[in-house]
Design a binder for these strands. Structure first.
Lengths: 137, 137
DNA sequence: ATAACTGCAAACCGTTTGCAATAAG
DNA sequence: CTTATTGCAAACGGTTTGCAGTTAT
């Protein structure tokens, strides 16, 4: 599972155009959660003829192929990250918009437990914890 | 804390126009999580001259006053619910968009624990668990 | 060769806003 | 009476889409 995004695209039989390769690389290099405009900015540094419509179409394609995860933090724009990054959840400062990644093994168990309690089997799951962090302790 | 939405509005000194009273009542009667268009539809049955702009302005006002909670489930439109409804979280079927309310005392503790572990004090919090419920068990 | 993909610009959809008219305190 | 609020319609911002031309396979 240490495949690159490009490799996973090829494994899924996606037609890899020069634009898609660039976007795949930009996502590969991203340690944060870029939105489409930010991806477009980074991709434009490599190929300045790329269009934002293509970025939109590509992230949608990659998301539907399970290569990316689409994150919606309630600020109006969608953000994306590599679906193969180690599983983690997000804490969002609703004032600043800052996103903090965290992992908690108890939460992993709880996610399954809650779904089960409700009579559902959880296939994919994503946890968002919105908070107002008042003070660093 | 068993005040009606209207009462809480008056306590906060909000000017209660006929439109705001209608919207407050519609929200009071809602057992679900209506979006603005749905609120507008329900309000229109009471006063058919009400405008959707007023509904947008009113829910924003009520949200900022802490009377409503704004919920963003990633489907592009905001939903609202009475902030004084007993604390609960939401499980969202990302295929159907269906929303299931649930409460889990372990989660309440965990929300605090995680924030603390990360060195933050959580003031308000909202938990969203996105899943793909495959089968009722 | 041909079906899929691209860039462009226009359309789209939920939401916000400027304005003149209206209503609450 | 004064200031906030309303309805309207236009603007907004992120996203999608129709189209004619281009590219991967």
């Amino acid at each position: 599972m240490t495949d690159t995004i490009l490799q996973r695209c090829e494994q899924k039989g996606l037609r890899m155009t020069s634009q898609r390769k660039i976007i795949a690389q930009v996502l590969e290099d991203a340690a944060d959660h870029p939105d489409v405009e930010e991806l477009y900015n980074r991709a434009s540094k490599i190929d300045l003829t790329i269009s934002i419509a293509t970025v939109y179409r590509t992230v949608k394609l990659f998301d539907e192929a399970g290569i990316l995860d689409k994150l919606e933090f309630g600020d109006g724009r969608a953000r994306y990250e590599d679906a193969e990054r180690g599983h983690h959840d997000h804490l969002i400062d609703i004032n600043s918009g800052r996103v903090i990644e965290f992992m908690d093994s108890d939460i992993e168990k709880l996610q399954e437990k809650i779904a089960q309690k409700l009579g559902y089997k959880l296939m994919g799951h994503k946890l968002e914890l919105y908070g107002i962090p008042l003070k660093k302790s």
